[in-house]
Design a protein around this nucleic acid. Sequence first.
DNA 1: CCCCCTTTGAAGGAA
DNA 2: TTCCTTCAAAGGGGG
Length: 533
Amino acid sequence: MPQLSSGGGDDLGANDEMIAFKDEGEQEEKIPENAFTERDLADLKSSLVNESEINQSPSAAAVRRGQQGEQRGYAEKHREHLDGVSKQQDGGMYKAAGYPTYPFLMLPDAYLPNSSVSPSSNKVSVVQQSHGMHPLTSLLPYSNEHFSPSPPHLPLDIDMSQKTGVHRHQSQDLSGYYSLSSGGVGQIAPSMSWQSQSVYPGLSPCGFRQTYSSNLPGASSYSRFPHSLMLGPSGMHPTGIPHPAIVPPTGKQEHEQYDRGMYVKPQVEAKREKEPKKPVIKKPLNAFMLYMKEMRAKVIAECTLKESAAINQILGRRWHALSREEQAKYYELARKERQLHMQLYPTWSARDNYEAGLSGVAGEKSKADWGKKKRRKREKQQDSSADPGSPKKCRARFGLNQQTDWCGPCRRKKKCIRYLQGGGCSSPASSDLSAIDSPPSPSPSPSRHRLHPQLQRPASPGCSPPPASPSAHFALSPPARAHTRLAHGDPRQPPTKHSLVGLELSGKRAFGSTAPLSAAKAAGLSLKVLTET
DNA sequence: CCCCCTTTGAAGGAA
DNA sequence: TTCCTTCAAAGGGGG
């Protein structure tokens, strides 16, 4: 791992993650021969930290913190910054794939609905495509490799530039990430990105073009893409470079628009231009988010599920079932994302996006709105905290296939009143479920943990093979949070029941190949097994 | 139209 | 240092 480096990690959470992985070492069996060792992963993670700090010229970090809230002069600033940084990094890993481009790049057929993962296919997943852009673009190299039928064998930090043949003057990881050239946007012709993309094995320009032009609604032809890239006002980085992290201040819809319109409807975007509002700079995606983006389509295709909540649950379990090596890829990617993001928006702070558009970055949402939201969440929290550790929502308790047992609000996807009422409804099933799928998440800390994910295992076990097998969980604890707490005594509790082990074990591998399975069916099956045992 | 749901990870603030 | 909170993506569905 080229990037590994010296120690000194600090806090990106890498260390913690490291620990988590270590602890989970028991599951070596799960790990591929060439899989990373825990230490490797740890190193990788720590390197994330180090690298980001190193790469980021000290000033960057300083600036970032010191100038928070100060959004002025993005263009110049960033340009400067990039200039400075672009020369010190090596990488070039994602050089070719700029954010804007990735949606087109990264989708291996693995995403094609109903298609088996075949290495030979160059097609881009239609499904994925529909989702528009996606940060993984930057990962093209990764994805390409990642989705190959055989386990990945490339080091995480391959210098993609070599493969891609992309120009070096770009700043490595970062600028390249977004197809930025050190000099600024103008220099980077969108086509450049595409060209470089073509370098990736299995991804010929033609393939992309054809696939996309045919699938992209509204896009008469791929050739338009470049233009939209350059013109799209929204989501455009001050430097003029479109970036997924930049979204129009209006929120969800805009976001979507950004995703799609950006490439497909430049004109529409042009209209938006009228609004001089500052774009919202979104948080960089974390490893799991990247994974989700990548796999969502696949899960949808396989499980015929549509609800994101359910899909996300499946994805969460799959995430835990991933080998360290696989997860490492995403961590690495996420790291790159963060780095790039940091370099592009040195003054940006995560804080900018939540308390609101407070910093003025978030356009439309008013402080009041944010305040409301905040309050709401707080209330929600209190509700749950009032009954910590108690079984949670009906959904989690009974699963999707037992909705008849749900309370009204749960059926409407609202707050579970049963739970609020003291959560008297415990069901054997729930305990089983929790035991079985629960990730080793050792700590109940974060907000989401209030909900006890372990108990939430909705029916979704969904896509039957939802990998999440107990062993899997133990094999790879969620690196993140697991960490620190693990250090203080491993709260992880072994699954109370292992009855599903066999099933689950078979699940992971079989997963990809199984025909689309109805989530409901899957859920039913899982539950059945569970209850029987 | 807005919000909820659900997942993990990262970041920032409070204690 | 630890804990807590918020946000990131996604999209069906409820109000």
